[in-house]
Simulated scan of single mutants.
Amino acid sequence: MTERKDELAGNLARVEERIADACAAAGRRREDVTLIVVTKTYPASDVRTLADLGVRQVAENRDQEAAPKAAECADLPLRWHFVGQLQTNKVRSVVGYADVVQSVDRSRLVTALSKEAVRAGRELDCLVQVALDADEGGRGERGGVAPGGIEELADALALAPGLRCGGLMTVAPLTGEYAGRQQAAFERLMDLSTRLRRNHPAATMVSAGMSGDLEQAVAAGATHVRVGTSVLGVRPGLG
């Protein structure tokens, strides 16, 4: 266990240094960027170790893995983010442990989340997931709504009992005009965030950037970066 803790501590320190350097290069304060560690495929013991090392924000993308892990770590001072595509039949479970749902991309999901949040007596922060590669009116390959659909979903979130519209999230597209142009994609998201805040001033979260492109996200203005591999290592079966 000590060996794993040392490994995670070293990885975290390197990621922290990358974020600090990116903030300095962009003229931003380090405290303006929040690190969310994506713990998918890794055990609850790693989550516990990360909490010991000072991590307070963790993310998961599959409910069947996240629910038991969150239950096992319920005693820890963590804020749980759900970042995967969310089916409505998983909403009740996710509402039980998630503090933030970053992948809201359709009105039916808003309705389901609201119903379960009220039933559970909880208030959830929700982000509209933006698919920068989606045709207007369509959804992206990895989920997400086209930019033209943001306002409608944000309005629905703002009116939904038990939910708050917290801001926007995106994953850098693999296809389309932003393929290989992560910073341009994240700058586009920031423009969309600025527009959103005209009507929803509290929707200040901008979640963008992962292990490979966190610097570009910070340069563009992201408030939250979601880092998995650079902290926890290459996921089992992927390397």
Rank of each mutant, 00 (worst) to 15 (best):
E3Y: 01
E3N: 03
A9Q: 02
G10E: 02
N11A: 11
R18N: 12
R18K: 12
A20V: 03
A20R: 14
A22P: 11
A22I: 10
A24W: 10
A26W: 05
A26S: 11
R29L: 12
R29I: 02
R30I: 09
E31H: 07
D32P: 01
I36F: 09
P43I: 07
S45H: 05
V47F: 12
G54F: 13
V55K: 13
D63L: 15
Q64F: 09
A67S: 11
P68F: 00
K69L: 12
A71T: 07
A71Y: 06
D75C: 04
P77T: 09
P77Q: 04
W80N: 05
V83H: 10
Q87D: 06
T88C: 06
T88Y: 06
V95I: 05
G96I: 00
A98V: 07
Q102F: 07
S103W: 03
S103Q: 06
V104I: 10
S107G: 02
V110E: 04
T111Y: 04
T111C: 05
S114W: 00
E116K: 05
A117Y: 00
R119H: 01
R119L: 01
G121M: 01
C126W: 02
V128H: 13
Q129E: 15
V130I: 14
D133R: 04
A134S: 07
A134D: 06
E136Y: 12
G137M: 10
G137H: 06
R139Q: 14
R142Y: 12
V145L: 14
A146S: 12
G148A: 12
E151W: 13
L153N: 07
L153P: 02
D155R: 15
L159T: 03
C165P: 02
G167D: 06
G167S: 10
L168G: 14
L168Y: 05
M169C: 11
V171H: 10
A172P: 02
P173E: 11
L174V: 08
T175Q: 15
G176A: 14
Y178L: 05
Y178C: 05
Y178V: 11
G180H: 02
G180V: 02
A184D: 09
A184H: 03
A184W: 03
A185R: 13
F186H: 04
L189S: 08
D191H: 10
L192P: 03
L192N: 11
T194E: 13
R197A: 07
N199M: 11
A203W: 06
T204D: 08
D213W: 10
Q216L: 13
A217W: 02
A217K: 13
V218N: 11
A222H: 05
V225C: 10
R226T: 04
V227S: 08
G228L: 09
T229C: 08
T229R: 15
L232M: 15
V234L: 14
G237T: 09
